[in-house]
Nucleic acid binder design. Structure first.
Lengths: 127, 127
DNA sequence: TTCCATGCAAACAATTTGCAGCAGT
DNA sequence: ACTGCTGCAAATTGTTTGCATGGAA
């Protein structure tokens, strides 16, 4: 049976309160300010728990550390290949697209959450 | 200037010839059968090179090792959250969706390649 | 002969895990 | 009191890198 923990609450709040899709390390550093004793292990363990419970989304970005995102409503992510920044967006998945995906894959359940990679304005301008 | 290498050709062919989205380790093991001297370092180095050249796609799947995919034409990936299996599919990104994404994010350039997570038939049946 | 690519092993980064003590029920 | 959660450190995993040697131009 699961038990309340201050640390877990703090991890959750930290994600909820920012819109910046923090990494585990960033969350750890942030919580360390208020509670210098907190350990990375605890942060990782709680992140995994929160993801399992569906309260938090894990966004994985090839090579770079995972980012975490508060789940309020289903939405999609646009990731810049260059700087790794994540932008939220919403698209509506109409029945046509949805059944087309089902027809082409073995995936049964999926929600309105896509990931797309590209290059963001500021990285494009730098080149 | 870049130089031809047998190993790079083998890595590329290995990805081209299978539709199974192999991991670096799987490619390494596969090539090791014919060439027992090949090293992981070489496989990784060549995979990165091929990705940079746009000949191969890297599919990243949170925590689990990256998978690699031959690029023939742009397509999307549906990944089972449970078993990690990757399915290819195609959807057409109409102008409406495309400009909606641009309006909501800072992403400028992106192609017809989405990633979506879900649960595949066989994993769903196991539950 | 030049210099990129290799094989090998060591290094690295992100994350997980084992354990003894602590905290929530 | 019981058992899950923590902090800590060591372990694991996936990947990168430094270096001496080998191979393509």
């Amino acid at each position: 049976m699961e038990k309340y923990s201050k640390q877990r609450e703090e991890v959750f709040n930290c994600i909820k309160e920012t819109k910046l899709h923090p990494t585990a390390e960033e969350i750890y550093m942030n919580l360390k300010l208020k509670n210098p004793n907190i350990s990375r292990g605890t942060v990782y363990r709680n992140l995994n728990l929160l993801v399992e419970k569906g309260l938090v989304n894990k966004i994985s970005n090839s090579g770079k550390p995972d980012k975490f995102d508060y789940v309020c409503k289903p939405h999609s992510h646009a990731i810049c290949k260059v700087c790794g920044k994540v932008y939220d967006f919403e698209i509506l998945l109409d029945d046509e697209i949805s059944s087309s995906i089902k027809a082409q894959t073995e995936l049964e359940e999926f929600s309105n959450e896509f990931t797309i990679y590209g290059i963001c304005k500021s990285c494009k301008n730098k080149k």
